[in-house]
Design a protein around this nucleic acid. Sequence first.
DNA 1: TCTTGTGTCATAGATAACTATAACACTAAT
DNA 2: ATTAGTGTTATAGTTATCTATGACACAAGA
Lengths: 124, 124
Amino acid sequence: MWWSAMGIRIDKHSGVPVYIQIMNQIKKEIVLGRMKEGDKLPPTRDLARMLGVNINTVLKAYERLQFEGVIQAQHGIGYFITQASFIKKEVLSEIKNFARLLRENNVDLLIAITILEEVYKNDK
Amino acid sequence: MWWSAMGIRIDKHSGVPVYIQIMNQIKKEIVLGRMKEGDKLPPTRDLARMLGVNINTVLKAYERLQFEGVIQAQHGIGYFITQASFIKKEVLSEIKNFARLLRENNVDLLIAITILEEVYKNDK
DNA sequence: TCTTGTGTCATAGATAACTATAACACTAAT
DNA sequence: ATTAGTGTTATAGTTATCTATGACACAAGA
């Protein structure tokens, strides 16, 4: 088994703390079915090297994911996924359509997300 | 003219720097047409008090928005909007539909946004 | 001119995030 | 038993963000 860094991408200059980005990226990989229950995560040292961040930053992300019950450490072995929920294909398809809509209308992604958050929270 | 804080909401514990949240919120208000070119922004001191943050944090947001050309300071008078672009009604409508879809399918907003970002960037 | 409202600048301190580095503990394979 | 791979813990230092506070500059109106 090897790690290319999987689909995990971070942006050090986005303003969002890196450890939170790592958490979100791993959750995303799981939801998209790229990682499933029982799968082993990249070792902390490896992921840190691949992402160009410090080990402690990856560890912080892993520890928080463990606290949330998403993954589980096994001392001396590695971290494993313990909880996996998948997104429906239709929903994923709709996300793609939505992304296309935004691009076609030249809507800035950050602004769209800000509006989306407001709408999502207000209509509850 | 008064300031209720307008539609500007921030979350101190979201991990995203507050001054960036303020920037995004103001851009959002403009795009939604709630503020238009020439409109005066809340004074730094007032917005700081309304949001429960320090003046310097608001100032940092305003200064960056000015650097981006969105707003313009007039010494002793206030900050004014210099650049306004609007979102199409159809796009806003689609954002609302999208938010509804996510809620109906119990999709976590953060994860949805993470997937959206990936799709948006990859399909370019 | 004086006052009020506002932008601007500066300094200092607190907290969070990130980095650098080392040492130790457990597991599996040889 | 030894080694390699991995998790765990600890310490220290740097940088970014946020706060607290004060002082000064400019504009408009009384």
